[in-house]
Design a protein around this nucleic acid. Structure first.
Lengths: 181, 181
DNA sequence: TTGTATTTTCAGAAATTTCTGAAAATTCTA
DNA sequence: TAGAATTTTCAGAAATTTCTGAAAATACAA
């Protein structure tokens, strides 16, 4: 059975990467374990698999739920909570992006917004102009990201696969209908 | 002079956000300070501004340079190194995305690749199929990201501003030329 | 209700990351 | 080349984050 070792090494890898993705080692390992295991797992099984304390698993579950990456699935005839991924791989990836946008961009955007609003209207300082540029860029990315979520998954996938040839399509559109910017 | 306090509070904010963006507090503060200050700054000035040790600033500079976010600019008649942002706000944002992709996606992609290659060809395990899906998704995003960088900044900006109406443009293209997927 | 199974909480311990500051290394000038 | 200016390094200290495990809280069954 090769896949046991496969799972184990990917779980370790997700642990190491965890902190780069916004959670800690245990949470990363838990996510990998739940995603790679076909059967729903309960907290004791997770703790035993990863060799960490029950309390740590409880905190990790809370974290993964706050990211909307896992959900409970009750098993008939068992009072324990069992956990499964909250959707397909695609769904999980989208969810990670949504949450990271919330945690990494939104606070900065609103801080910049309030600074810019409070500025004197005759303030032409370099710092303010830089803030304005950061703000505009973040806002543009945010809007674009919201818009992408409105596309249906098929449109989104075909856009992703289109890659840089989207440039040609855009040029074509502009030739046919004129550019507004 | 309002902008002094503006700078200070944004520097503090970038410090707090730093760890979410992949660096530590001091590095985040240094980046904000350099980006918001019109004049090039030397290491002593940065240390004094932020109230941290000279050694810490030296390490922070190395880090920001490894992200290609700052560069030196020599001041005539001064032997000290002076630092400035390595390009426009847009350039810096792109650079952060490029580096994060390198640090957050590439290692996982190559680990998955090697697992999948080594798998027995008759392995139909759930875990392997999940790994394959994660791999394909990461690869698609990576390719798309590379492709986006090939667009010129104007095309890229117009794509961003187009938002979800890109769906309509895609549908139009498919009607005119047929869909390949 | 009472007792049992299960989950959560959280104080302190352990692990990890960040920071300091003095010494070493490097770079430049004369 | 010597010596002054500047930068880097890195061992240990400080700060922060993560983890444990026992106690408290909650949920359920009889």
């Amino acid at each position: 059975m090769q896949s046991k070792n496969d799972i184990e090494s990917l779980v370790m890898h997700f642990g190491e990467m965890g902190s780069r993705w916004g959670f800690n080692r245990t949470v990363g390992q838990m996510l990998a374990l739940i995603v790679l295991t076909e059967q729903p797992l309960n907290a004791d099984q997770i703790a035993a698999s990863l060799g960490v304390s029950r309390g740590n698993v409880s905190m990790g579950i809370k974290e993964l739920q706050s990211w909307r990456l896992i959900r409970t699935q009750s098993q008939p005839g068992d009072r324990k909570d069992y956990f499964v991924p909250n959707g397909s791989i695609w769904d999980l990836a989208m969810q990670v992006m949504i949450e990271r946008r919330k945690r990494e961009m939104d606070p900065t955007l609103s801080m910049l917004r309030s600074h810019i609003m409070q500025a004197d209207s005759d303030d032409q300082s370099y710092a303010l102009s830089q803030m304005q540029q950061i703000h505009d860029l973040l806002e543009m990315f945010g809007r674009w990201f919201d818009d992408m979520q409105k596309l249906n998954p098929n449109q989104l996938q075909s856009l992703l696969k289109l890659g840089s040839s989207v440039g040609k399509v855009l040029d074509m559109k502009d030739r046919l209908f004129g550019s507004k910017d």
